[in-house]
């Protein structure tokens, strides 16, 4: 077990318990929370955990700021969509799309890194912003290929769709969607464990050293540019793989679900809320954030109803204000947990 976690223990009893609760909830989500909407939420949490963890590899472990993470996520998603359309529905299309998406992401990351990381790390942030905007524009312009703003619908193997009925288990109808969920769950788990291994490898230690003091890292013999470049490619490829899982799950890709700058901001918030440079922070950040995104409105609607006799309060709690409250939650969490939830739990304060 410890080997699976690469020796990186949660190092806090509370954190361990929270992580176990999340793990069990996600592992048995189809049976614990039957219903289309809750399964959608669970799958989204799994995928965002990987997406956020891969961003943490860059931001938290390597000290590199990138604004192109959704672009890489999108490359994986569009890879699956395009291959499924052009090769026809089938597992081969899923595999080809996934592999090509990851390779394209790594190659693009390599180019961006080589052009900008040699100069200065801050330059990298600006280049990623420019490239990501250009790609977003390109995707919406090339509507013949990408479906433009409408995105693409496509078919995946029937085994993974609700049409594939498999009977009942524990009183819950099991079908292809359940299988699809487990593909997402185990795929995400494997990718997360892989990232956890990378940050605890000799390579991961070098990244931390570079983050701490790149000048000295170079002076003891590490070629800083190469380490940063490899970290960038790895992070991009993992984001693309998460994107492929997302595409397989949704059977739809569009600029809003994969490429948008809003998602980029969400990822940033999730890393910061969870705790940068901890990996486990990705699990907490993504879970909390996706839950809030999906259920805050419902919760506020209920609260608004319950307080309808009071003055002002129901207006403040109106579901339309959910973004405002999400903002407030974010500010509070950064204020009270500057090192993220994981940092806070580990320090025991």
């Amino acid at each position: 077990m410890l080997h699976l976690l690469s020796g990186d223990k949660p190092r806090s009893v509370v954190l361990t318990i929270i992580l176990l609760v999340i793990l069990i909830s996600l592992a048995f989500a189809p049976f614990l929370f039957p219903g289309v909407r809750s399964l959608e939420t669970a799958a989204r949490i799994c995928i965002f955990i990987v997406l956020v963890a891969s961003y943490d590899l860059l931001l938290g472990y390597s000290g590199i700021v990138s604004f192109a993470h959704t672009m890489f996520f999108g490359l994986g998603a569009y890879g699956v969509a395009l291959s499924s359309i052009h090769m026809g529905r089938g597992y081969d299309a899923l595999i080809v799309g996934t592999v090509l998406g990851a390779i394209a992401a790594a190659a693009l990351a390599w180019l961006i890194a080589l052009f900008s990381l040699r100069v200065r790390a801050i330059f990298f942030a600006m280049i990623t912003l420019a490239v990501a905007s250009a790609v977003a524009v390109l995707v919406s312009q090339l509507s013949g290929l990408t479906g433009g703003e409408d995105g693409l619908n496509y078919k995946i193997p029937r085994d993974l769709t609700p049409a594939n009925r498999l009977g009942e288990f524990l009183g819950v109808k099991v079908n292809g969607k359940t299988l699809n969920y487990y593909l997402v769950f185990f795929g995400s788990a494997a990718l997360f464990l892989l990232l956890l291994r990378v940050v605890n490898s000799p390579f991961g230690r070098v990244l931390q050293a570079i983050r701490e003091n790149d000048f000295r890292a170079e002076a003891v013999g590490y070629r800083v540019v190469w380490y940063r470049t490899v970290a960038t490619c790895l992070s991009a490829a993992t984001a693309a793989l998460a994107g492929s899982l997302f595409a397989i799950w949704l059977r739809y890709v569009g600029p809003d679900t994969t490429l948008s700058f809003e998602i980029m901001l969400d990822i940033l918030l999730m890393v910061v809320i969870g705790g940068m440079g901890t990996m486990y922070g990705a699990i907490l950040g993504a879970t909390l954030f996706v839950l809030a995104q999906n259920y805050l409105q419902t919760l506020m609607g209920a609260a608004s109803e319950a307080t309808h006799s009071l003055p002002l309060v129901p207006h403040l709690l109106d579901p339309d204000r959910w973004l405002l409250w999400l903002g407030v939650l974010f500010v509070l969490s950064v204020y009270f947990f500057p090192t993220g939830i994981v940092g806070r739990l580990r320090n025991g304060r």
Binding site: V198, Y222, V230
Partner: peptide, 17 residues
Amino acid sequence: LVIQAHRNKGFSLLSMA
């Protein structure tokens, strides 16, 4: 970290440090 650099182990990605 210094000894690791000297021993050329920096690009080992999948072993535990």
